[in-house]
C-alpha cells in the first residue's frame, strides 16, 4: 500500500503535479490497486461535477444580458441597421414554426455579427491548396481543398485573416452540424455528413470591392436567412462551436 495523502491524490487528478511527481504517482498506481481506486474515485467526482454543471453553460443566456453589455459600447454605423433589417425581413418571410419567436433574436444577432465582420482579403487565396474548393463525390457536391480545411478548422467565433470566413454554425433537423461560409469565389452552407462537408447552398462569392477590405454584403444576409430556415434551434455559441469542432463536427 502506497502512503499517499488525499491532498496528493487530489493534486494528481487536478493536474497540479510537476511532470516528475506525476510520473511517480502513475507508476505507484500501476502496482497498487488501492491507490488506483482512490485516484479513480477522485477523477469520477470531478467528472460528475463538471458534467452536472455543463448544461448550464450550454444553455442560451438571457438575451438582455448581451444587449446590456453592447449598449455600453461604441454605437454601430447606421448602414448596419439596414443590413439587419434585410435579414429580419427575410426571416419574417420564412414560414413560422413553433419556437420561432425565441430563436429569432439569436439569429438576427448572428446575422448582425456576420454583417459587422470585415474580411481581410490578403495572403492566402481560395486556391492556396492543391485542390479546388468544391468537388463531386458520389453525386454530391463536397467541400475540398482550402474550403474543406477552413470548414474543419476555422471557428466563427474566432475569425482569422484567411480568405474564407465562417459566419455561423448550427445544427439542422437531423442533428448534423452545418456551417455558413463566405469567400471570394463562393459563399454557401455546408453540412457535415458521413465525414465530409456536403454543400447545401452555393452562392456567387464576394470579390473585394476596394483595396483589401470590404463590408460583408447582402449574400451573407441571404445565407443567414437560409440557415435560419434549415436550423433546429439557435446557432451554436462560441463554446458549443468549439465543442463541436473538438468532436470532429459530429
Amino acid at each position: 500500500m502506497t502512503d499517499m495523502t488525499d491532498e496528493e491524490i487530489m493534486a494528481y487528478v487536478d493536474g497540479e503535479l510537476e511532470e516528475e511527481a506525476r510520473g511517480r504517482v502513475t507508476l505507484a498506481a500501476l502496482g497498487d490497486p488501492d491507490l488506483a481506486e482512490r485516484i479513480a474515485a477522485q477523477r469520477a467526482l470531478r467528472d460528475r461535477l463538471s458534467a452536472h454543471f455543463a448544461p448550464i453553460a450550454q444553455a442560451p443566456v438571457p438575451p438582455e444580458w448581451a444587449r446590456l453589455i453592447r449598449q455600453k459600447t461604441t454605437p454601430e454605423p447606421p448602414r448596419v441597421a439596414q443590413v439587419v433589417d434585410l435579414a429580419a425581413a427575410r426571416a419574417a418571410r420564412q414560414p413560422k414554426q413553433s419556437g420561432q419567436t425565441t430563436q429569432g433574436r439569436a439569429w438576427v444577432s448572428a446575422a448582425m455579427a456576420a454583417c459587422l465582420a470585415i474580411g481581410v482579403f490578403a495572403g492566402t487565396q481560395w486556391h492556396g491548396r492543391d485542390t479546388g474548393p468544391i468537388s463531386v463525390k458520389d453525386g454530391a457536391l463536397v467541400a475540398s481543398g482550402a474550403l474543406g480545411h477552413a470548414l474543419d478548422t476555422q471557428l466563427a467565433s474566432a475569425q482569422g485573416s484567411g480568405s474564407i470566413r465562417m459566419l455561423g454554425t448550427f445544427r439542422r433537423e437531423s442533428g448534423d452540424v452545418c456551417r455558413v461560409f463566405s469567400g471570394q469565389q463562393a459563399s454557401g452552407i455546408a453540412c457535415h455528413d458521413k465525414g465530409q462537408w456536403q454543400l447545401q447552398h452555393v452562392l456567387p462569392g464576394s470579390q473585394p470591392e476596394a483595396g483589401d477590405y470590404r463590408q460583408a454584403g447582402s449574400a451573407d444576409a441571404e445565407l443567414m436567412g437560409l440557415a435560419q430556415s434549415m436550423a433546429k434551434g439557435d446557432p451554436l455559441d462560441a463554446q458549443q462551436e468549439q465543442a463541436a469542432k473538438a468532436k470532429g463536427w459530429q
Binding site: 454543471f53 444580458w65 455600453k72
Partner: peptide, 27 residues
C-alpha cells in the same frame, strides 16, 4: 452613471463569457 464608452473588445469578450459566468453564479 455610464463611465464613458466601454471598448468593443471588452464587451465582446464579456458576452462570450456569459454562459460560464452563469454556471459559476448558479453554483
Amino acid at each position: 452613471k455610464a463611465k464613458g464608452v466601454t471598448s468593443t473588445h471588452f464587451a465582446e469578450s464579456l458576452v462570450e463569457l456569459l454562459p460560464r459566468m452563469r454556471r459559476f453564479a448558479r453554483g
